[in-house]
Amino acid sequence: MRNIMYAAVGLMMTTATAMAAGTPYHEGSATIIEPTDERNPLAEVVSGIDFRKSMIREMQEDEFSNPGMIVVDYGAEIWEQVDGTAGKSLSDVWESCAGMDAATAAVSYPRYHDGAGKVISLEQQINYCRETAMGAEPYKWEKADMLGMTAFIRYQGNGEAINVSIDGPAAATYERGKELYYQRVGQLDMSCAHCHEDNYGNYIRADMLSQGHINGFPTYRVKWNGVGSTHRRFRGCNGNIRATKLAYGHEDYVALELYLAWRGNGLTVETPAVRQ
């Protein structure tokens, strides 16, 4: 009986707020794709930008007003810079070290890498190449060099469809990511799914929930007054529900990142995205 009542009230509310939301998703103008894999629990796959209002969308789409472009430009500069004992730049070593060009890498990470012997994120691939092929110090995770380099590499694939692999040697990491996605955490006792799977398109207080995809990372956030990584976002979502934040690069965050990237396979790369 109670459940029937929720459904009725819910339906009324959805219609009422659909008008007020003013996002492409609510107005029916969002780019909606079908999942590329039948294991994907989402019936429709929608980029986070289609849940944002026009001001944010215009900022993202116009490269001259997109504040994230400065970070991409900085990345382009250090991509060519020689650093380390081998006298090489990342651009010199990337293809042989990562095993693919930058544009392909932009749509393929996290990914199992033979040299590393595990699934690694783009940040970890960059540091792997710096240490093994350049003889250079690893970059610190959430610092300007790493954000610039990841933003630059991802930008090489801007507009291309994300296509990460969860099979073969990546399977166990995918399973772990899936487990984490549905695990309740924190004193508020919620999983990612409660917000991003069950309630996308609904407001949670003042925030319109999206599907929580990562196709726009590194992302410029007005709240951050700068660009941040996926792991920074995970730490934010964990903190909001009063859960411990994991360290940047934690293997569980890499697993979650792989799982999220896969749920969004087929979405195009939108780095640097803009969010409030």
Binding site: V185, G186, Q187, M190, H194, C195, R242, A243
Partner: peptide
């Protein structure tokens, strides 16, 4: 349910140590 349990202290995963 997504609704938090407002008067319960046990059975949480990774609660922030403040809580």
């Amino acid at each position: 349910t997504m609704m938090p349990s407002f008067y319960r202290t046990t059975g949480y995963n990774r609660p922030d140590k403040k809580f």
